[in-house]
Design a protein around this nucleic acid. Structure first.
Lengths: 139, 139
DNA sequence: ATAAATCCTATAAAAAAGATAGACTAAATA
DNA sequence: TATTTAGTCTATCTTTTTTATAGGATTTAT
């Protein structure tokens, strides 16, 4: 399961994407609209900013905004940033690989093989679907 | 990521499946062969037994053994038993569903839709691949 | 009887997740 | 330029989950 952090990030990003025309959006507004603890959300948005996904403006009229068009932000990027590996096992992770401590040879491990396929099938979706694809349906 | 518990369970089950002919297998043997803490493994095997996946015999000559042929144990069963939901979000989980707290209407939420697809693609593999499919490759 | 093994429950230790606090910095504007 | 507004940064706290261990109870073979 994705952590609350990542779930909140998605909902915040959706809100930002659906309100691009309004200019910078207040943390407090997002927190209220999406029912998220404001202080927790603050940290999350900052992390997204430091990763170059969001931009911000301080002072009156300030807030957060997307740095890229929604269709250029793959979902996998957000998950990896805030949650870490997408794979179910360290030994099949592309970005957070760790050697398996419990089997003799990964090249011959059937678990490794199957979990590699699960990873691929998830990535096929998560690398290609973007923020744009998770905005409100039928709109 | 799957928890260590689930990872250990898979390796233990693989060992048991690859040694069905030997009769009951000692916890200590599995622990040693697969490099798992024996006491932790004890709890895991007990849980698998209580779920009807393993059987056991006490006393001399005792140990653990599979209750079903490996090809009748889907990987999804093990994951759900020890780790819980396979889905990335509570609102798309088939077995551990929880309503989304952050969006107005799941029926119209694009995140819900995409994560539902990720779940389906993972389940397509994890429901159909069994213990038999993760035994040592090329054998 | 004894030794061998699992059973069972409790608990502890460590790590991760979730949330909060508060002082600091930058920008707008009156 | 003082004030207000809003993000920045870092630290800490609490809770939950994960990982692991302890030890007596029970069952079985010999």
């Amino acid at each position: 399961m994705l952590s609350k952090k990542t779930q909140y990030a998605f909902h915040a990003l959706i809100y930002l994407a659906e309100n691009v025309d309004k200019g910078p959006i207040l943390i407090s507004e997002i927190a209220q609209e999406k029912n998220i603890s404001i202080k927790f959300l603050e940290n999350i948005l900052l992390e997204l900013k430091n990763a170059g996904i969001l931009g911000s403006k301080k002072g009156k009229g300030g807030g957060y905004y997307l740095m890229k068009p929604p269709k250029e932000v793959p979902l996998a990027r957000i998950i990896r940033l805030l949650d870490g590996p997408i794979a179910l096992l360290p030994c099949v992770s592309l970005n957070y690989y760790e050697r398996c401590e419990n089997c003799r040879d990964e090249a011959v491990c059937g678990l490794n093989e199957v979990m590699g396929r699960v990873r691929d099938s998830a990535l096929k979706i998560l690398e290609n679907k973007t923020l744009k694809d998770i905005l409100t349906r039928n709109s």
